[in-house]
Design a protein around this nucleic acid. Structure first.
Lengths: 347, 347
DNA sequence: CTGAAAGCGCTTACAG
DNA sequence: CTGAAAGCGCTTACAG
């Protein structure tokens, strides 16, 4: 079972390999809705296409990539593809990328700079056409390496300063403010927050929004933030929540998916009544939010918008390789109001 | 910023490109713990390695792939990478694959044969070293195409008959039986099941297990299965559950992740008391299961085992290209008992 | 133990 | 409009 090559097609159609190559790339242009570049007379083209079909010819991508540098493959780096937020993003990127004829390589950094670097090295070896990256803390040097290698790059979800690349971010400061505002409107004043200390802009910004909104409502004195890290979150969150109840904190913010699930587990396990003893605002999306009793109020973002914007931006950069690109798209968070933040009962 | 090639390294080290190539592949062998193949004297090798480091040389994978046919990349096809079950699997495959120096391409078939075919074509164009596939209904011809192209293949999660490839499957019949048995032991007799009619072996086998266990307990008369399809599941499940309550069915099986979430939503929404009015057994893993009130009994499988077994099997096939490989690994399901199946109250 | 050289399958200036 | 030919960056028989 020998691989059939462009040479076989040429022989079959009675033309040169050049002609076959031209016909093939014209076909691609048509599919992509672009102008034809080389004009082959209809009749010749038909003959070639017939031979292609007859032999079942498919161009060897490794060869064409070696020749023209393009691979039609992009790389996506998240911190963990098993995290619902990132798997939703991955899925949406996959959809739009495959529709545009791109193949996608995924990898997870686990918020580790060294892991991110080894992924980037692998991706660089594969001469990808571009990368979409949710950078971890300290990932600046690694991302710079990608950009310096001339690889079109889009950062998403988290920002990193001083890099010349595309960015698609949520307005996380506003997301944090929205959470406080809706709690304030419902009558809650002693509002606490538990956050990862990961050095990630999205987390930091949500906390910033929380602090700003608290100040705006003249609740600076009530600002109450506990930070934790991966691997220790369960214990920290449990201890903190117990302490919050003792201190009569009446509402709490869980600023991510993963913190939310742990936080809700703790509240459930400790039999803490929501919202009577403690109101709750979560972030992002999770099947649990509407299955919890009561249902959970949350601040969400559209993973699809983020994915589509990121991919489209990347394509734009890929298509204009010589222009410097340094734009940012900022997406808006949304509130989904449920019973976990019902108007505070005055006892 | 010119790409630095093997030629540059050769010049820098004052040796031939052959020597550089040998040194590089020896390095790879050492990393993989294999024997050296070509012996280059230590001193020469050192000189080469020094040049490699100095210039920051990294081999062009497209070129080496064109030459030797290996890409060190595998493809993984699931039905939906955003589904928790598959994103967990994906993550575990990623881990073990990157550790072994493989890069992973992911794609989602959405249970569509034509989509699966177009993914396979793309993967074939990329001359991957192997594929790990959860085939959709009717995917037999497509998988056969992969196998016939000489690509090492492992099926996981779902079986497809008559194909000569590796398989890693759960004992799904047993999983279905376990669910019925534990309900039976807790005193439930009128046990219903709602299932996708997707023509997927894992679903079919769980139903088969359910039916067999019902028969074994002399409950053939109570067998009660409703089937649904994607897109219509919410409505079907709601109607069916309402009808089940009316008919005094006292327990229900949700044989997948996605059915479970919808089913629990309906039960929650309709305020149906679990387990007093209806006991519930779910399958697989979900954050919700322990957050629901009451917590949910489920039959689980280890996604990590499935991922690791699949990858290791694939590697084995890749490494012995001429042997016919046709083995199956069967994994065992596990029960996690919670309050959604507490002993039935006699009223 | 090391080198000169062919060739993997394409693409693309260059000629005609 | 079409063809002959160079070359992308490797690997690997073959020689020595």
């Amino acid at each position: 079972m020998k691989r059939i090559t462009i040479r076989d097609v040429a022989k079959e159609a009675g033309v040169s390999v050049t002609t076959v190559s031209f016909v093939m790339s014209n076909k691609k242009c048509e599919e992509a809705g672009l102008d034809k570049k080389y004009c082959i007379v209809e009749e010749t083209a038909d003959r070639v296409l017939q031979a292609v079909n007859k032999l079942g010819y498919r161009p060897n991508l490794a060869a064409s990539s070696l020749r023209n540098g393009r691979r039609n493959t992009i790389g996506v780096i998240t911190s963990d593809i098993a995290n619902h937020f990132f798997s939703d993003i991955a899925r949406s990127i996959e959809n739009v990328a495959y529709d545009s004829g791109y193949t996608v390589l995924f990898a997870s950094s686990d918020e580790s700079e060294s892991k991110m670097e080894s992924i980037v090295d692998t991706f660089l070896d594969n001469s990808l056409d571009g990368m979409i990256i949710a950078p971890c803390k300290g990932g600046g040097a690694v991302v710079r390496k990608v950009i310096d290698a001339g690889i079109p790059t889009v950062l998403f979800d988290r920002d990193l300063p001083g890099l010349s690349c595309g960015r698609v971010l949520l307005d996380n400061v506003k997301a944090g403010e929205m959470a406080v505002d809706l709690l304030y409107d419902a009558g809650y004043r002693k509002i606490a927050m538990i956050n990862y200390s990961l050095g990630i802009s999205s987390m930091d910004d949500r906390e910033k929004g929380y602090r700003e909104a608290m100040r705006r409502h003249s609740l600076s004195g009530e600002i109450d933030v506990c930070t934790t890290v991966y691997g220790q979150a369960e214990q920290d969150i449990r201890d903190y929540i117990i302490d919050c109840v003792r201190r009569k904190v009446d509402a709490i913010l869980f600023p991510t998916n993963t913190i939310s699930v742990i936080g809700l587990e703790v509240l459930h396990d400790l039999n803490i009544e929501v919202p009577d003893v403690m109101a709750v605002v979560c972030f992002d999306k999770n099947d649990c939010y509407d299955l919890y009793s009561p249902r959970i109020t949350r601040i969400t973002q559209s993973t699809e918008d983020m994915a589509v914007e990121s991919f489209n931006m990347l394509r734009k950069i890929i298509e204009r390789p010589d222009e410097k690109y340094d734009h940012t798209v900022v997406l808006q968070p949304e509130v989904i109001l449920r019973e976990s933040t019902s108007t505070k009962k005055t006892i």
